[in-house]
Each structure stands twice: as C-alpha cells, then as structure tokens.
Design a protein around this nucleic acid. Structure first.
Lengths: 233, 233
DNA sequence: TCAATAGTGTCTATTAGACACTATTCC
DNA sequence: GGAATAGTGTCTAATAGACACTATTGA
C-alpha cells in the first residue's frame, strides 16, 4: 500500500494524454516465385478503400506482449500459428494518422508457402477483403505503410545473408532448388547453384532425407532436406 | 493539495485505454577505453534509487517525431545536438512497469568522446544524477533496461561491421589507432593493424590530412584522418 | 642507443565466383 | 537420344589472417 501511495503522489493527469498504439503486421509469403504481402482494404476513413497492413490497437486489458499481439493478429487474419514473427520498427510521426497521434509498432511474419493452400483468409471487422500483393508492385497504401514495407525489404535483404530467415518461408521438407529460389527472390538476383550450396552448407546443418521430391515433367528428382536448428547463444 | 486529492479520487486507470508511451535513450560514448552509457538515478518509484536509461513520456501536444523526441531528451540531458541517434527497438511487455502499461521506444545515441570534456550533464526532474557506466559492468537497472542495453550491445557488434557507426564515436579528426580502438572496444577483441587498415580502406573513404597528432611520450606521431561520407543510396 | 607507437609489404589460408562435367528423369 | 533439372569437382580471383619489416619520435 505504501508503494501504491507513492505511485499516486507521482500521478500527473497529463501523463494520460497518451498516443494510441497499434501493432501492425506485414504477413509475407512466397507466391508464384514472388515475395508477397497480405494487405487488407480499409472499410472506414481515413484512407477508406486503400490497402493497408493489417493491425489493431493495443488493448491494455489483454495481458499480452507486443509480439503476442502480433501473433494474435496473424491468427485472426489467417488462422495460422507457430509462425515466425519479428519486430521491424516503430513509426510515430505526428501526422501519420490524420485523426490523432498514433504510434505503430510494425512486425512481420514469414509464412511457409505450403501453408497457403489451406489458408482461408479473413479480413478483420474494419476491412473488406485481404489480398496478396507483390512487394515490388504495391498499390497506393494507407498511412506510411509504403515506408514500412520499404524498410521491411531492406531488413530482409540484410538478414537473409546472416540468419536463417529463408527457411521460415519453406515447408519443413524442401529441396536445394526451393531454398535457393527463396534467396534469389529476397536478394533479387540469381545465384550459382554450386556456390550457393557450398555457402549454405558452411553456415547451417541440413539433413538429407532419404526421400526424393516428385516433380512434374523431366529432370532428376531432387533430394529432400530438413533444416536442423542449432542453438548458437 | 486539495486539487491533487481530487485528481486522485477521480483517477481510474480503466478510463484510459491507451498504453502510455515513452521514448528512452541510451547515450553512449567511449571513456577510458570502454564503451559507457549514461544512466540516471530514479528519484521516484517505481525503482526509486535504481539506475535507468533517461527517457520521458511522449507528449502528443508536441509536434515531434519519435526521433526528435529522442534528440530532445539527449539535448536536455547533455546539451548536445547534431549527434547520431538511431531507433533500437520497442519494449511493451505488459508488466514491465508495475504502475501501468507502458510501451517504450528505445533509441541510442553515439557521442564523440571529444565532446565529453565540455559536457555538463543534467539529470532530468525525475532523476538525481547521471553517471557513466561501463556496458560490461552494469548495476541493477530499473524496468527491463538491462535487456535493452543487452540488445543494444548486440546491435552495435553487428552494425560496426557493415556501417560507419564507429566514426560517430570519434572526433572529426582522428587517427588510425583511435579508429581501431573503437572497433576493438565494440567487438571486444584486438585486431591486427595492417589488416584493419586494409579492410577499412576498402569500405570507406578516409582523407589523410597533412597534420599529425601530437602525442605524449614516445612514438612516431600519427597522421590525422577525416572520414568522407559517401552517399550510398 | 632503446622503447614506444606508426606505417607498410607480403606470404599464406580461406572464401567466393565461374564454369564445366556427370547423374537421373520424362518424352 | 535430347531436353530438363539435380548434383559435384575444380580452377581462379578476391579477401582475410599472420607476421615481419621499416619509420619516426622522446628519453
């Protein structure tokens, strides 16, 4: 009780003219050999009819971390869980939302593309529908969401080189070609097969399964691989 | 006092749906061949008497970006401007502040160590004094500030290898040894002179001034250098 | 002179880039 | 066999690591 009294004596009403806070999440996956992001269409102003990254206000009565909020939004939008989610950056320019001061903590999710088939995408209450858009051919976006996605591209291009994020976009079992394709899409350039394999082998542990992936058409059937996560603390 | 009482009796945290938002800033510089951070001592609960990163609530009536808020806090604390400031990460776990839900956008500043001499450090209204602490020997800190500084160390260790942040900690004119020392301190290991120079020369443009730095004691006087920033968009 | 710091040359080891060769499948 | 994809070997170029040598100063 002593503690509470201390707290309150320090209370200043001005502290409570707080900005609103949202957590927005850019949900990414690979579709048709292209890195795409799931965007909703806004049902209400501001930016009614514009595309935007899904998100929602932080509800302080839910007892969740910001990351859990992002995961919940991902769940609400896509029904997916156990997906890789990472904080990108926080955006808080004073007039980024014309209504009032809104600070947005942006996250991104990397969805393995094999999960997209069974995906039934739901737009939230404040959105009409959700669709996938190429990160390279974006429509006009609400707020500063274009800037957010630009920052995201830069983050991915950097991190694909020294972290295992590429694997987050793949099914549990994958082939060398599939893995290489992910790198090529994120980096925006083609890589030489032999050199790519040598490099990846030097960085990660890949278990060669005793299975081959069935292909349509000609070509030698490729070996299936599994990524073995090593704890590097 | 009567008024305060009123305020308190009317105060119901549930009336306020938005979390509070603070911008905190870890101010770093190199002192005695060590990377140090400026920490204030908290004057009020919670964590009264504990050390913390300086910061303050986001005031929505100031028309400033989050980065400008960080720069203002840096200014208030140290009187310094034109200092490199970068967003680190946002921390919003539900119980990181025992009073209420507080979301903190953490920034860091890199202060050239030649500016420290003329520095008269002011603690804010809610702080007793401010002192420099080695990032490797931190006292107990308020909130999750230890975690913030841990994340900051990781960020610096990574970014020193592919960005020019090391130069932000140096005076405009510096020597090879001074630059190498900054890298060694951030990376936590010693480097070989010749290899270090070759690497840096391949990455950045350094202009050799026609001046030498006066040293105390023996040794060949070193050339002074200037870092030439190249726009790489 | 020596100790101390600065500046450079160069040999070797490692890693990255290029490219060709073999392997397996479908038609 | 030929087209298509997969898997491997190896030469070369570029980069990183190690270390020794020279240069310039103060005591």
């Amino acid at each position: 009780m002593e503690k509470l009294k201390d707290d309150l004596s320090n209370y200043n009403p001005k502290d409570y003219d707080s900005p609103s806070v949202t957590v927005d999440i850019a949900i990414l996956s690979i579709i048709e050999n292209d890195l795409k992001v799931l965007l909703i269409k806004r049902k209400y102003p501001p930016f009614r009819g514009y595309r935007a990254i899904p998100g929602g206000f932080v509800d302080i009565y839910r007892n969740e971390t910001l990351k859990e909020t992002a995961l919940r939004e991902l769940m609400e939008e896509t029904n997916l869980k156990d997906i890789y989610v990472e904080q990108l950056k926080t955006y808080g320019d004073p007039n980024r939302d014309p209504r009032k001061r809104v600070i947005t903590v942006a996250y991104f999710a990397l969805v393995p593309y094999n999960l997209l088939k069974k995906l039934n995408i739901k737009a939230g209450d404040d959105a009409e529908d959700a669709q996938w858009f190429s990160l390279k051919k974006l429509p006009c976006l609400a707020f500063d969401h274009k800037k957010i996605l630009k920052d995201l591209c830069i983050r991915l291009e950097g991190k694909v080189n020294y972290t295992d994020i590429a694997f987050k976009l793949l099914p549990k079992k994958f082939t060398w070609s599939q893995l290489q394709k992910v790198y090529e899409i994120i980096l925006g350039r083609s890589l030489l097969r032999a050199n790519f394999r040598r490099k990846i082998k030097s960085m990660y542990v890949l278990k060669e399964l005793k299975e081959f992936k069935k292909q349509k058409g000609a070509g030698r059937p490729p070996l299936l691989l599994k990524y073995i996560k090593i704890n590097t603390l």
